[in-house]
């Protein structure tokens, strides 16, 4: 079943909505094919993300003021927030991975927020993007665990506090849940972003009907506010889960 059928069916209903059209990857400078190097809207919005992060964290802290300006205090707040999270969740020895987690957090939070700008493209709504990040976290954590603890890392799945007969069963469950981690890690973020934007788009389509347009505009406003919250919370959750996985790699003993 393709878009054509869906669009046809919806057109017959009198409403035109293409909630998924906003996620289409398009080449920036025309052309038909999307090669791996083609500059697309993904490139554009990722570039904006980099620019926004640079503006906040580099240009904002240019003054190096003891008494910070507004932008600088936001940058320091972000730094302190992520730093404390890494320290609290992963422990003191997790602090040296702080730049990686800060990179992920800043990228996700800015990509999410920029995606809320009307007509923009949300890079984090794509499973390809989030899956790469989640797989990167998963592989890093797994390799780190084996490098630091060798075979002892497998104790993560052998819960010594459980009664002995239960341990093999728990080990199977633990292994499954370990390998499901990158899936849920990536789909959570992409799904949240996709869902929110698609819902906004659906309500936007309802706004074309004069009778219910005030209601739908109200709904768009409410969903937009919720999405702003979700954008931040999902970045937070992604970062904190990364910290939790990192803690498992650093201290596999329960």
């Amino acid at each position: 079943m393709g878009t054509d059928d869906v669009a046809t069916a919806e057109d017959e209903g009198g409403l035109v909505f293409h909630p998924m059209d906003q996620f289409i990857v398009k080449p920036l400078f025309g052309g038909d094919t999307v090669n791996w190097y083609t500059p697309t809207n993904v490139t554009l919005w990722m570039f904006f993300t980099v620019v926004a992060i640079t503006l906040l964290l580099v240009a904002g802290t240019r003054g190096r003021a003891i008494v910070p300006s507004r932008v600088q205090s936001v940058a320091e707040l972000a730094y302190g927030f992520v730093y404390k999270m890494v320290e609290d969740v992963s422990g003191k020895d997790g602090v040296k991975y702080f730049p990686y987690i800060m990179t992920l957090f800043m990228f996700i939070v800015f990509a999410n927020m920029l995606g809320l700008i009307p007509m923009s493209f949300t890079t984090t709504s794509h499973i390809a993007v989030t899956a790469v990040m989640a797989m990167a976290v998963f592989l890093t954590v797994t390799i780190l665990g084996f490098v630091l603890h060798g075979v002892g890392f497998l104790k993560l799945f052998w819960i010594s506090s459980a009664p002995l007969p239960l341990r093999p069963i728990l080990a199977v469950i633990e292994v499954i849940s370990y390998f499901v981690r990158p899936v849920s890690h990536s789909i959570r973020l992409a799904g949240n972003m996709m869902a929110g934007h698609a819902v906004i788009k659906v309500f936007a389509a309802f706004a074309a009907v004069a009778l219910i347009s005030p209601l739908s505009i109200l709904a768009i406003t409410a969903i937009y506010a919720l999405e702003t919250l979700v954008s931040f919370i999902q970045a937070y959750v992604f970062a904190i889960l990364t910290c939790v996985y990192l803690k498992d790699a650093l201290h596999p003993h329960h």
């Binding site: 990857v25 999307v34 090669n35 791996w36 190097y37 083609t38 697309t40 993904v42 490139t43 990722m46 570039f47 993300t49 980099v50 992060i53 640079t54 964290l57 580099v58 730049p99 990686y100 800060m102 990179t103 992920l104 800043m106 990228f107 890079t123 794509h126 390809a128 993007v129 790469v132 990040m133």
Partner: peptide
């Protein structure tokens, strides 16, 4: 491939800027 390529570029750039 396109998304992954640009994502990796972006993340590396952000990482370098941050660190």
């Amino acid at each position: 491939p396109n998304q992954i390529f640009w994502l990796v570029v972006t993340l590396v750039v952000i990482y370098l800027i941050l660190s």
